[in-house]
């Protein structure tokens, strides 16, 4: 289990990194935290001809509030920010509690010390927490290449199994998480075989209530139930205009399990079991999100 040989580049700036990626084209792979790529290389399942190591590109590591700038109050996270830094960030805890809640579910501290936010999102593993969380939060992803820059909403970013909207030579450089509306509540729940494993099913929920406690907006997303993060539109519809009740939760859970997801079977969970978990976790997560929204009047 030793990686195959590769050419190795250590750009110090983003521009250098983009130039290298442009130069080497499809042969080169950017190396972020490496916590998914390096195991794949050790198994020789991945054999990139060249690695462009982003770990010395200091300008891609930050967490800041765009309150005063063009971001409209978004929380901006540099793509090379370590997951551990996000987990420990007070700003994230305040501005994006859903993200903060999900962080400890990503593997183990030893992995989060190296793993990056951008790396996980760009890898687009359907079992990863961050894509589903970002989809629920309607994050926007800033992508840059040697020739330009664009912003892609999370809803258009994830294209399929380990596939994203990123073009060859293009790097994810920043994730912008918009602020929550007043009277919003969020919850993240997942069920894994063991602490730190990829989840059998995970759910991220964001609900926004009006002054009378009726749901004005809801975004529920899942991980580990498809080729990528899955947005539960049908479950969301059942919540529209409704106040919290046990029946409502069951209706939303049922909609999610039967209409929103078409989960795969694998050695850890059958499709039927995953549907069951989708229903249970949806109900539990929504109950928590409603409760939190009611506690967040501002």
């Amino acid at each position: 289990m030793k990686p195959a040989p590769f050419d190795y580049f250590t750009p110090a700036t983003l521009d250098e990194a983009l130039a290298l990626l442009a130069e080497h084209g499809a042969d080169a792979k950017p190396l972020a935290g490496g916590q998914s790529l390096i195991p794949a290389m050790n198994f020789r399942l991945a054999r990139p001809a060249a690695l462009v190591d982003l770990n010395r590109v200091g300008e891609l590591s930050y967490i800041r509030s765009e309150r005063d700038g063009r971001g409209g109050g978004a929380t901006a996270i540099g793509a090379m920010t370590r997951q551990r830094a996000v987990e420990r960030s007070e700003l994230v805890a305040r501005a994006a509690p859903l993200l903060a809640e999900a962080m400890p579910s990503i593997a183990h501290p030893q992995i989060r010390n190296r793993g990056t936010v951008g790396g996980s999102i760009a890898h687009a593993d359907p079992s990863a927490e961050l894509p589903a969380v970002m989809l629920a939060l309607e994050a926007r992803f800033r992508a840059r290449s040697a020739t330009g820059e664009r912003s892609v909403p999370a809803s258009e970013f994830f294209k399929g199994l380990l596939e994203t909207a990123l073009q060859p030579g293009e790097l994810l450089v920043e994730i912008a998480v918009p602020p929550l509306l007043p009277r919003s509540g969020t919850a993240f729940l997942e069920l894994a075989r063991r602490h730190g494993d990829y989840a059998l099913v995970g759910v991220a929920a964001v609900v926004t209530l009006d002054a009378r406690g009726r749901c004005t907006a809801a975004r529920i997303t899942f991980l580990s139930v498809g080729d990528g993060p899955v947005l539960a539109t049908e479950a969301g519809k059942t919540l529209a205009g409704q106040a919290l009740s046990e029946e409502l939760l069951r209706a939303a859970a049922d909609a999610a399990a039967t209409r929103d997801v078409d989960p795969p079977s694998d050695i850890h969970a059958s499709a039927a079991y995953r549907r069951q978990l989708v229903a249970v976790l949806t109900r539990r997560a929504l109950a928590r999100a409603f409760e939190r929204a009611e506690g967040n009047p501002s």
Binding site: G34, Q110, I111, N113
Partner: peptide
């Protein structure tokens, strides 16, 4: 050598990391 067992854990600048998942 795929980052699960933790036997290779070392400190990198004081933080625990898997030394099998770094070059």
């Amino acid at each position: 050598e795929h980052g699960v067992c933790g036997a290779c854990t070392v400190l990198l600048d004081g933080d625990a990391v898997r030394s099998c998942l770094m070059f």
